[in-house]
Design a protein around this nucleic acid. Structure first.
Lengths: 104, 104
DNA sequence: AAAACTAGGTTTGCCCTACAAACTATTCTC
DNA sequence: GAGAATAGTTTGTAGGGCAAACCTAGTTTT
């Protein structure tokens, strides 16, 4: 293993704590809605919306808009890409933890 | 478990990838020197110095200045506080991973 | 002793991002 | 149409990472 020039290549989209928590939540529960996440993580609406937007742009999360009792209801779920990225993130972290990391 | 107002309380000092890599390296090897880290992670001197400064300010890392063949040689090591913070960081991450997180 | 080199920084300037607060758009109820 | 709720977008600010330039103390070379 070449020690020279190892590069830290962590996925910054996922690495941000709020987004990591959202991804983690979605990974386990399959679905989550806007107000649920809002309450769960004590965020402002704007802040939550912008984090989700970031995850959408990375194609990690898809948005499902429905109506529930005639009230708009937005639900989120991981895409396949998001699921893979999330798994890969943890995989990389295991390697960092064992110090066998990072790139080559 | 109260779901309202869970807070994401990740230690940002450690969470930054470069610093996480440095901490990880020190956790395993006990010691590391400036030029070793420089080479290991492909950083500029200024960038590395500023990350280490950050870790020093948090009292996670201590600096050991010696001379090696009359050439100054700076070595770094984790403090007890740093060691604990590092372990705690991973502990929190395990909880995030299992989604049993975060505060409460 | 002057020049050049080395280790280990500090300073400067740029750019990106998180965040709160304010504002907006859409659809519902009355 | 007025008012309320959801789900955003926009704006402004503060903080942080980064490279490049500069700095300082000591060492070696000439």
């Amino acid at each position: 293993m070449n020690k020279v020039g190892r590069v830290i290549q962590i996925d910054r989209v996922i690495h941000e704590p709020v987004r990591l928590a959202i991804m983690s939540s979605l990974y386990e529960k399959e679905f989550a809605d806007f107000n649920g996440l809002l309450e769960e993580f004590s965020l402002t609406r704007g802040n939550l919306a912008s984090h989700i937007k970031r995850l959408e742009q990375a194609k990690y999360v898809e948005v499902i808009k429905t109506f529930k009792d005639r009230i708009p209801h937005t639900t989120y779920a991981l895409t396949n890409k998001g699921r893979k990225a999330y798994e890969n993130y943890w995989h990389l972290f295991d390697e960092i933890r064992q110090n066998i990391v990072l790139g080559g």
